[in-house]
Design a binder for these strands. Structure first.
Lengths: 226, 226
DNA sequence: ATACGATGTTGACGCGCTGTCAGCTTTTCG
DNA sequence: CGAAAAGCTGACAGCGCGTCAACATCGTAT
């Protein structure tokens, strides 16, 4: 049985847009079911991953939560990994505009960019219904991390921004790759602690990270004393 | 068939010590085979994980590389995850003394500690036969990360060191948890790039990281211009 | 030396997941 | 409307999982 009007309202946004864009036009029924099935699988996957963790879920678990037959799954995805990648990429796509907004609101102000960007990331982490959020928050010892092309594109975009600011501030001896990597590493580790509740204050964390990137622990010291 | 004198010379060091310490004494034969079996499984696991990746390997793959029967595996480990954790912990145990050496050689010099510690970590990553090294170097999109109690203990030790230096330098407004987390994040991301060959110069990377932690991008700029 | 209990090993078994494919249903289009 | 294309279905063979009754080996008491 195919899934026609499945998709709960919680469905993944970018994917939903994809569906709706064809729905308005009188798309062929075939086209519609394909979109609906894909969306149903993704939504089921999002739920199951959140419940069972990445390792714990099976393709069968996902498909069982839809009205589709097991074989149909493989018309849309090769494996659970591909489902997760699609969900992950969707999250990245949702975050991208937030990063762009941070850059635009900051103008030439490197410090403002850093604070806004870290804030945007941490808020996104804590509030967006992304798979990564659910997964990372699980009390597991073994975790997964994903480097999709979409992730790498985001990294490159951030690197581009950082290169621009570095040029502005004559940081010509600072390797942009290393600098960007460090920012990402910091965001990851601090984000992880936020998700696990070991740290509560999102804004303080963002300021810490931003000052740290700009001037290291010394700068943090001078800025954080109220 | 039990494995008595299995262990290749490449076997995991800490575990090997455990075996040899009992071998010298006239340990019971039972005791010996237990150690040898455990070691054989670990060594087989190390190889297979390196060949097939974490996700790709099965308990059967591991046991097939030993002379043991499948049921025996479960007398020693609950799952492949537990094998990996043991291998991982072993790596952590091998790294720990290197970190201690860095702290002792640095005396009261925070900068020296940071440089030596990052150098030690990056060299360890690139040269030690750890599972993590092999795994991280694989061209996968999906990766695993492990937070074992052993890892957390290492983190706490590092945090303790950092707290000591922070007190020395009156960094009383710098949250040690966040600072340590940032160091770890930087080490992870840069280490990853070293493993994947995107970056070559280990010492330059260590200096970058150390200066970055101390004084952020500005400090890197002023220190790295030869 | 022998015998017996304890300890550990073995591999076959039932179960569930994987990915496939022949057959069937639905859609498209002339 | 009818034929061809598209795609859904679920049964199936293959394999990994964790278990366990039967068996082998070791330690120990006599």
């Amino acid at each position: 049985m195919q899934v026609l009007r499945a998709m709960k309202s919680t469905s993944v946004s970018t994917e939903k847009d994809r569906a709706e864009s064809l729905e308005g036009n009188q798309a062929g029924k075939r086209e519609q079911t394909k979109l609906a099935n894909r969306a149903a699988i993704l939504e089921a996957g999002r739920q199951i991953f959140a419940e069972l963790g990445y390792e714990g879920t099976t393709v069968r678990d996902i498909i069982r939560r839809t009205e589709l037959a097991s074989g149909t799954f493989y018309n849309y995805f090769k494996s659970k990994e591909e489902v997760f990648h699609a969900l992950h990429d969707d999250g990245v796509a949702r975050f991208k505009p937030l990063l762009r907004a941070a850059r635009e609101s900051a103008g030439q102000d490197f410090q403002a960019f850093m604070i806004t960007a870290f804030e945007a990331y941490f808020n996104f982490l804590m509030n967006d219904q992304s798979v990564d959020r659910e997964i990372a928050a699980m009390p597991e010892w073994t975790r997964v991390r994903f480097d999709t092309p979409e992730s790498l594109a985001l990294f490159d975009e951030l690197k581009g921004d950082i290169i621009a600011f570095a040029a502005e501030f004559k940081l010509n001896h600072v390797d942009p790759e290393l600098l960007t990597a460090s920012c990402v590493g910091i965001a990851q580790e601090i984000g992880d602690r936020l998700l696990r509740g070991r740290i509560k204050d999102i804004d303080a964390a963002a300021r810490f990270a931003a000052y740290f990137v700009l001037g290291g622990s010394q700068r943090v010291q001078s800025e954080m004393q109220v």
